[in-house]
Design a protein around this nucleic acid. Structure first.
Length: 508
RNA sequence: GGCCCGUUCGUCUAAGGGCUAGGACACCACCCUUUCACGGUGGCGAUACGGGUUCGAAUCCCGUACGGGCUACCA
């Protein structure tokens, strides 16, 4: 690795919305690249045109933009190793597959889908419910190992559909080293003859990753744990094609689990928490699934909790900025076991980030939230102050609506019952007196207002506790919010007095 | 079924042979707060099970159980 520039890649296939598991893979790749002054590449693996979903690629860019995890090279950002979309690299793969055939590491196979089906049915036993196309069966199938040379040539020339399959050795042990899991051994006798080049001329994942990782000079591959079983096939391809000594280092990341096992894209709807970073519109069904952003998450919090889902720096520190993550991240400290996602903990991260953020930072997003809820704010300065006053009680950005909405719009249905039960003439006259007192105040600030309030209450022999709740209902409309005199200060004299008068009238 | 990966409080995790197994989320109690929160203090709560190795095991080895992944001309 010394002297060699670190190059890592995230290689999604655009078959739907990218969920938080994919985003964590992005994050770890990104952190590793930044930490080692390397390059982070985004490569689109769109070799399966059947499963291609329009908009999925754009969605990925949006997610990367939102989280700030921007690639250095991608179809969108360009780079020296393009194209970065596998469909546009189609012609590059065939030569490698054919080289393997020439050298005896692969072969042409002409079996039709029906013939494969027949083989599987025939070989199926209770002990072996899913038979593989492997060294045990390949000599019974229609391929360049069983057919005479002339017949193979004839088929190739006549345009009969065929695939190229890897000829898995019958009895070898493939040693595989993973940066997270250490060494493991695989017996090739148990592995199948994977298709490398499909009948449509597109490579499968197995050929494409190896070829592209080589051509793009990838040094480290971080991908999901689900790829572990096919890793030995990739090692073999590296050995045959480019030399095992040139192979990148591997790390297979643990899965993120939902409440009932592997996190699926439907879990979001099912359990009431998001699985996508951003809102995802399924182009097939038209279904709209809200993401973390729509739930009111800050991107910083999203990145933060994602990083900690399977990794920690070995200390008790939990709140990290992106810069801090870059500094402390190490792939060796990533866990090998899967992590269950806990929405409550995720909200705690967001809450902490909201408390930590200056109100100016929160301002644009909160302003948008208000706008979406039909409240257009003209006094931005006031909103900023309101945010300061209420942010410690907001777990999600969407909570600002509930927590600070009353500053800009008195609720239609104030909690009158909270006042009525203990309302009387004395209290009423207290508030009439108070309005007079506050009206005369020249220094309109919380301390002064509280002082005048308490002095008046004492002189009328009413406990302040009896009066604070009515005042809160007058100004807020409910039993929540920051200290009531702070609210009055921010509301300003005219609005405060108007609200008191208003409720006085309604209490008649 | 086969192969592979995994297993510490309910959840995320620390402790990579040596203190009463530490922290965070959640939950409970108290304090602060004449609202709701924040904050503070304390409580509840775990090494899956069985064998080894060792003076000593959460940690190393083996087995069992459980969980997960893979087993496509999907990625």
């Amino acid at each position: 690795m010394a002297g060699k520039q670190v190059r890592v890649r995230f290689a999604p296939s655009p078959t739907g919305g990218l969920h938080m598991g994919g985003m964590r893979t992005v994050l770890y790749n990104y952190l590793f690249a930044r930490k080692h002054q390397g390059r982070f590449i985004l490569r689109i693996e769109d070799t399966d045109q059947q499963r291609y979903v329009p908009g999925a690629e754009e969605y990925i860019y949006e997610c990367l933009k939102w989280t700030g995890l921007q690639p250095d090279e991608s179809p969108l950002h360009g780079g020296d190793y393009g194209p970065y979309r596998q469909s546009e690299r189609k012609e590059m793969y065939r030569q490698y597959a054919e080289k393997l055939v020439e050298e005896g590491y692969a072969y042409y196979a002409f079996d039709t889908a029906e013939e494969l089906e027949v083989m599987r049915e025939k070989m199926k036993t209770p002990d072996n419910p899913s038979p593989q196309y492997d060294f045990r069966v390949r000599l019974q199938m229609k391929n360049s190992l069983t057919l005479p040379e002339e017949q193979v040539q004839e088929k190739l020339n006549s345009g009969v559909p065929y695939v190229i399959r890897l000829k898995m050795p019958e009895n070898e042990t493939v040693k595989f080293h993973d940066l997270i899991r250490g060494d493991s051994l695989f017996q090739t006798a148990l592995l199948d003859d994977k298709v490398l080049l499909k009948a449509d001329g597109m490579p499968t994942y197995h050929l494409a990753v190896v070829v592209d990782d080589y051509l793009m000079k990838i040094t480290h591959v971080f991908r999901g744990e689900e790829w572990l079983p096919s890793a030995p096939a990739h090692v073999l391809l590296w050995r045959y094609l480019f030399g095992e000594e040139n192979m990148p280092q591997w790390a297979h990341l643990p899965l993120i689990l939902g409440p009932e096992g592997k996190l699926s894209k439907r879990d979001g709807m099912k359990y009431g928490f998001p699985v996508y970073p951003l809102e995802w519109k399924d182009p097939a069904t038209g279904e709209i699934i809200p993401g973390f952003r729509e739930f009111g998450f800050m991107p910083q919090a999203f990145v933060n909790f994602l990083a900690l889902l399977g990794w920690n720096d070995g200390t008790d520190k939990e709140i990290f900025t992106l810069e801090e993550l870059i500094e402390t991240f190490s792939i060796e400290r990533v866990h090998s076991a899967g992590a269950r996602f806990d929405f409550e903990k995720a909200k705690w991260f967001n809450h902490t980030w909201i408390k930590l953020s200056p109100s100016a930072t929160l301002l644009p997003e909160v302003n948008q939230t208000f706008k979406r809820n039909g409240i257009t704010i003209s006094d931005i300065q006031m909103l900023e102050k309101a945010i300061d006053l209420v942010k410690e009680r907001c777990h999600l950005l969407s909570d600002f609506m509930q927590q600070a909405g009353f500053f800009f719009q008195y609720p239609e249905n104030p909690d009158l019952t909270a006042v009525q039960a203990r309302w009387n003439e004395e209290k009423k006259s207290f508030f009439e007196n108070l309005m007079q007192l506050w009206q005369e105040t020249e220094t309109w600030n919380a301390a002064e207002l509280e002082n005048r309030f308490k002095t008046k209450a004492e002189s009328l022999h009413i406990k302040t506790g009896e009066l604070l709740l009515p005042l809160r209902i007058m100004l807020v409309g409910g039993k929540f919010g920051p200290p009531v005199f702070d609210i009055a200060e921010l509301l300003g004299k005219a609005e405060t007095l108007k609200r008191i008068q208003n409720l006085l009238d309604r209490l008649k």
